[in-house]
């Protein structure tokens, strides 16, 4: 028995028949290419800044898009699609951090996130990177989503899976700490 008789065109690599069965595939190749061009750089920046590892950001960016295309996400337009993409990336990052053994992101030793020598940017790095290095990974995530991407507390809660109420408090503390570090040139 061949697979062709069970799932028509499944072996042909043709996207169209699958598009009819999976909502995610409602985005065709060209639409995806345009969406990718608009969103990939900001997603990479988020992953690179939060993980502090550009090579990891490369891998997770690709994996995020593959999972995005494979998922049955609701068709609520580009804003929701972007948010969904950041959620996938956040989960991948969390999985990556958890892989060695700790169950909570805050238990991961800071050395894991230590600045990689391969970090390929010159930056406002002079001021932001040392300060980012002093922050906990979760705080880096929250700060980036709020102040670089401009997401609301509600949206950040959707992306990170944290409670909306706790976002405000966590973000307030993280921002105060970050501001202090920036004023001191990254020194605690």
């Amino acid at each position: 028995m061949s697979w062709e008789s069970i799932i028509p065109n499944v072996l042909a690599g043709d996207a169209q028949p699958l598009a009819a069965t999976a909502p995610a595939a409602a985005m065709d190749n060209e639409q995806f290419a345009a969406f990718y061009a608009r969103s990939a750089r900001s997603l990479w920046a988020y992953l690179a800044r939060v993980s502090r590892d550009p090579a990891l950001a490369d891998d997770l960016t690709q994996e995020s898009y593959v999972r995005f295309l494979c998922a049955d996400h609701p068709e609520d337009g580009e804003v929701a699609a972007r948010r969904y993409l950041f959620k996938i990336a956040t989960n991948l990052l969390r999985d990556h951090w958890r892989r060695p053994q700790p169950s909570c992101i805050d238990e991961v030793p800071e050395e894991v996130f230590a600045a990689r020598s391969s970090e390929r940017h010159s930056d406002s790095a002079a001021t932001l990177s040392p300060a980012m290095a002093q922050m906990r990974p979760r705080d880096r995530q929250l700060l980036w989503l709020a102040y670089a991407e401009g997401y609301s507390h509600h949206e950040i809660a959707q992306i990170t899976g944290l409670g909306s109420a706790s976002i405000r408090l966590l973000l307030f503390r993280a921002r105060r700490k970050m501001a202090r570090l920036l004023r001191n040139g990254g020194e605690a």
């Binding site: 190749n29 990718y36 898009y65 406002s124 102040y147 501001a179």
Partner: peptide, 28 residues
């Protein structure tokens, strides 16, 4: 904080060497 992050975002978005969209589409 907002100014520092926005500056950093503008610089970071110029850095990545992204894989072509077609390759990701094919993998998916």
């Amino acid at each position: 904080v907002t100014e520092a992050f926005q500056r950093s975002r503008n610089q970071s978005t110029a850095l990545p060497r992204l894989e072509p969209a077609g390759a990701i589409w094919w993998r998916a």
